[in-house]
Amino acid sequence: MTKTYTNTGSKDTRSGFGAGLTELGKSNENVVALCADLTGSLKMDDFKANHPERFFQVGIAEANMIGMAAGLTIGGKIPFTGTFANFSTGRVYDQIRQSVAYSGKNVKICASHAGITLGEDGATHQILEDIGLMKMLPGMVVINPCDYNQTKAATIAIAEYEGPVYLRFGRPKVANFTPEDQKFEIGKALHLQSGTDVTIVATGHLVWEALEAAKTLNEKGISAEVINIHTIKPLDDKAILDSVTKTGCIVTAEEHNYLGGLGESVARILAQHKPTPQEFIATNDTFGESGTPAQLMDKYGLNAEAIVKASEKVIKRK
């Protein structure tokens, strides 16, 4: 029996971030926000309007934004930086590395428009390497929530966590299906669907696709287990190992390059503890291009259909 998940109305995950930040503005006076000329895109307008003294418009100057965020922690502030994922990571990698990660600063790097679903702006803005960049930094927590509700909950949760966090979310409207009141626990995978034939581990926008894939697989008589990995680092090793012990094979699904992404983190755990056949739903060491999000997900094989095919393939490899 597959569990049924209902889309309560598609929304963008970036709006979940904005809503979470609005709540934090009210509940935690130490929360401050910095933005590099993308306040509307990051949905930070409410926070800015309600707490102008705690909002720092830095202009198109991301390196300065990251450094300032590190400095703001000295004095007890909890800075949330906001810009696109590309400009939140690759553009400022050394600033994050030295001033935030190595310095152990309590900065929350909040990155919208991640992945290929940024759409028409094309490859200059579609980063598919950010999870890898961030997870390699010692001490950095990497979170990629799946829908509006989960992004909102994650935004609120990371303010309570002491240390650097990378929070990744996106632009397109996607199914909103996780419970509105679900508490977000960093590093704790969510078991969405029980199954016995194949484990599907998905993160971000691919979680809904994984649930859709499980439905199709069920119709074909294949029992798929679906796990929502919202935290890529620290990874919930136990949830993954317990599941493959039952199913004997796994598909990982993410809107990211297969090099450096969730799939590689899962492969490492499996290689160390329980070698298991694995297939990767991810981009294949490539840049993106212009197009609608749906066209791009289809062209680059990041949807339910691709997950179904990968599941059928990996089952044969058992």
């Binding site: 300065n64 450094g67 300032m68 965020a69 400095g71 703001l72 922690t73 000295i74």
Partner: peptide, 30 residues
Amino acid sequence: TTHEGLPGIRIASGSLGQGMSVAIGAAEAK
């Protein structure tokens, strides 16, 4: 570096050009 907890140090530096931003952030916190 702050990494080893040496009293007196509040930020790692060495990779150049980052300290002004950190100082400004600390000034805004003040």
